[in-house]
């Protein structure tokens, strides 16, 4: 369920703009932050708030990279696989991550902690190979640095 506070905040925000539709991504992001991902329930609620149909919102939600229509772990790791990061060896990072977390690209670890996703160039080519963890950039990464990062994230939860 959507907390009343968040709901009224969003309603107020939507009321401030001339066209509710322009708030679509913001509302989706807010509900995604709340639910962890943009679930069907969130979709219905966002549609309600914005006066759009669920399909109209799904048309947007399924388009964008950073809107998750399927459940994700607590930490979403986006590994940049574009040219420069690829040149600097992102494939090794990915292989290592998959191995270490025991998941494939797109998968979520059994403990629900990590989801691994590829992403197009994130604009940190000067720090290649780079990854985003919860939209925070990390790079340039070595396998050791990556291991330390995963360990830290794990420790924070144990």
């Amino acid at each position: 369920m959507l907390p009343e506070k968040l709901k009224s905040e969003l309603t107020a925000q939507i009321a401030r703009v001339d066209h509710p539709r322009e708030m679509a991504i913001d509302v989706i992001n807010a509900l995604q932050d709340h639910y962890g991902y943009f679930s069907d329930e969130a979709l219905a609620q966002a549609a309600d708030l914005l006066g759009m149909s669920p399909l109209e919102l799904d048309e947007l939600a399924t388009f964008y990279t950073f809107i998750y229509r399927e459940p994700v772990g607590k930490h979403v790791i986006h590994v940049c696989d574009s040219l420069i990061c690829w040149m600097e060896g992102d494939e090794n990072l990915v292989a290592h991550l998959c191995d270490r977390l025991g998941i494939q690209m797109g998968g979520t670890t059994a403990d629900g902690l990590f989801t691994l996703l590829p992403v197009c160039c994130i604009g940190y080519c000067d720090r290649a190979p780079a990854i985003l963890v919860d939209r925070q950039v990390h790079g340039p990464l070595t396998i050791d640095a990556l291991d330390r990062l995963i360990d830290t994230l794990r420790e924070n939860h144990s």
């Binding site: 574009s82 040219l83 420069i84 197009c120 160039c121 604009g123 940190y124 080519c125 000067d126």
Partner: peptide
């Protein structure tokens, strides 16, 4: 919305 791979000047 600097999405062109290799570009990070706006950032």
């Amino acid at each position: 919305d600097e999405m062109e791979p290799g570009t990070f000047k706006d950032r």
